[in-house]
Amino acid sequence: MNRIRAAVRRFDSYQQRHPWAGFPVAVGRKFSDDRAGSLGAVIACYAFLSVFPLLLVLVVVLGVVLHGHPALQQKALGSALADFPVIGGALRTNVSGLHRTGLSLVLGLLGTMVGARGVANAAQYAFNTVWAVPYKRRPGFPGAQFRSFAAIGVIGLGVLTTPALSGIAEGVSHLSVLVQAGVRAAAFVTSLALNVVLFWLGFRITTAAEVPTRALRTGAMLAAVAWQILQAAGGY
């Protein structure tokens, strides 16, 4: 035990003298002090709950628009669920039991709005907590609600545009290998750049104005890269 304590003290002394070693230690301590894991879990919980009513809306709309074309319905539904790693396949298999009724559409829209609003509110609380914004300087009513609805719009834009770019990349399979590689690379770069902008805008909306916009840039870039990796891994 004494050797372990001595090793810990030596490492602590080393990381205090070397910024490159102290930075990850400081990030980990900040993560723990802010209870960032719990804050992220609340956001993920609301996001997960909003997926199912959104799928209900999707099934109802597809049932109306593509009535009499079950193959196209399944193809469109599969394309939408491709952005949900791991659970996408299970949802695509079991979502067919939902009924195409007006009540289903209303319940789906209400559930999606409640879940999305919960995500936006939880994100505002989490980001302002991490940035140590005092409660009295955080957006109040109705400003916080306007920010939540604006954040929902940004999230929806990202959900719609990313699959569209993926669809463009997959739609050139009949062309030469070189052209396919070029189009897919261009779609990847465009998607990454768009995600950086959307994450940056989302962070700006959900964080109090006293936090400089430039301070949110690095987080937006890291989030966009992580999202691209998650989509690629999930698709694989």
Rank of each mutant, 00 (worst) to 15 (best):
V119N: 01
S104C: 07
G88K: 02
L98S: 10
G97V: 13
T93Q: 09
H99C: 11
R92Q: 03
L107Q: 08
Y125C: 07
V119S: 02
R117W: 13
T101S: 15
A122I: 01
L105F: 15
M113A: 11
A90G: 08
G115D: 04
V106E: 06
A122Y: 01
G115Y: 02
L91R: 02
R92I: 00
L103G: 15
Y125H: 11
G108Y: 01
T93K: 10
A120W: 02
A116I: 03
A122S: 06
S96A: 13
L103Q: 14
L98P: 01
A123T: 04
S104H: 07
T112F: 09
N94K: 11
A122W: 03
L91I: 05
L98K: 06
V119P: 02
R92D: 00
G97I: 10
V106K: 10
M113L: 15
G89T: 00
G108T: 06
L91E: 06
G88P: 00
H99R: 15
M113V: 13
R117V: 08
L107D: 03
A123D: 05
A116G: 04
L110Y: 10
A116P: 04
G118I: 05
S96C: 11
V114H: 00
A120Q: 04
G102T: 09
A116T: 09
L98R: 05
G111Y: 08
G111H: 11
M113H: 12
G115I: 07
S104G: 15
L105W: 14
V95Q: 05
G115S: 14
V95M: 09
T101F: 15
G89I: 02
L107Y: 08
L110D: 06
G102K: 12
V114K: 02
N121D: 08
L110W: 11
L105Y: 13
A120E: 01
A116Y: 00
G108V: 04
L107A: 11
G89R: 06
S96R: 14
G102N: 14
G97E: 08
G118N: 05
S104R: 13
A90W: 06
A116C: 12
G102S: 14
L105R: 10
M113Y: 12
